[in-house]
């Protein structure tokens, strides 16, 4: 079995490497991918059409809005799937303490104190990454992952019960769903104002600035929706995987 696998892998690898002869060289500005109309359009026209300097965010949240919306749905479904597969409601007798004292229940004093000081900074930076995603590297996915990571850090340092009081299972699912509702609802708002689904220019009457600024503002709304979903699902994945779905003490 190992030998057959090895032979197959060698053959596939050799074919792929043989094909690289036709590929453009590293860093070739004239490669087909970079010379194509799509890429040139995004680089040159993004600023005219949306007034957003970060082309990646503009393509993500505006030009390819459908794609991003359904990627968010994929993440949501994965989170729901993990909960559906793993979550068990075991014996309630061994329930962990649930009140405020749960905060001091586990972990080292130094670790807990450091965590309490660091988590707000991480969350602040994550919010900056989400809100400033049009102008600097960032956006809903990156900021959402950071926000989720801050909850995971908190759960690691202070125990899962303490983290659950901040981001309970119910709340996590509601936040995740709210993110998709924000995203899809913004698309429906475009429909109500007479445009196509996720055609942000039609939101011009209710947003400050001109049509291009409406697209810029809409990107922020959409990124916030993405960040909601990613944050909640990241934490749901961690909390379910680390406790085998019991959501008790955790790691």
């Amino acid at each position: 079995m190992k030998l057959f696998g090895f032979i197959a892998v060698i053959i596939v690898g050799a074919l792929l490497l043989a094909a690289t002869g036709d590929f453009p060289a590293w860093g070739d500005a004239g490669s087909p991918a970079s010379q194509g109309q799509v890429s040139s359009f995004y680089i040159e026209q993004t600023i005219n059409e949306t007034k957003v300097p970060n082309m990646v965010t503009a393509v993500l949240a505006d030009f390819r809005g459908y794609d991003t919306m359904f990627e968010t749905v994929v993440i949501f479904i994965a989170g729901i799937g993990i909960i559906a597969v793993l979550r068990t409601f075991g014996d309630q007798a061994s329930k962990a303490p649930d009140g405020p004292e749960a905060d001091n229940d586990s972990g080292d004093l130094i670790v807990r104190t450091t965590c309490h000081m660091v988590v707000p900074l991480i969350q602040l930076f994550a919010l900056y990454v989400i809100a400033h995603g049009h102008h600097s590297p960032g956006g809903g996915f990156q900021g959402g992952v950071m926000l989720g990571a801050s909850y995971i850090l908190f759960a690691l340092a202070c125990g899962l019960p303490a983290a659950k009081r901040r981001m309970g299972e119910r709340r996590a699912i509601i936040i995740a769903a709210a993110g998709i509702i924000i995203y899809a609802g913004w698309g429906v708002a475009c429909l109500l104002l007479g445009g196509n689904f996720l055609d942000y220019t039609s939101l011009d009457p209710i947003l400050p600035g001109d049509e291009q600024m409406a697209r810029s503002h809409s990107m922020l709304v959409v990124e916030i929706g993405v960040a909601f979903t990613v944050t909640a699902i990241m934490f749901a994945i961690y909390s379910n995987l680390s406790t085998r779905g019991r959501l008790e003490k955790g790691l």
């Binding site: 990646v56 993500l60 794609d67």
Partner: peptide, 15 residues
């Protein structure tokens, strides 16, 4: 740099 691959991979990472 070509923004398109970055966009595609950004979502691919999270998914």
């Amino acid at each position: 740099a070509n923004p398109l691959p970055h966009v595609l991979m950004l979502t691919a990472i999270v998914v």
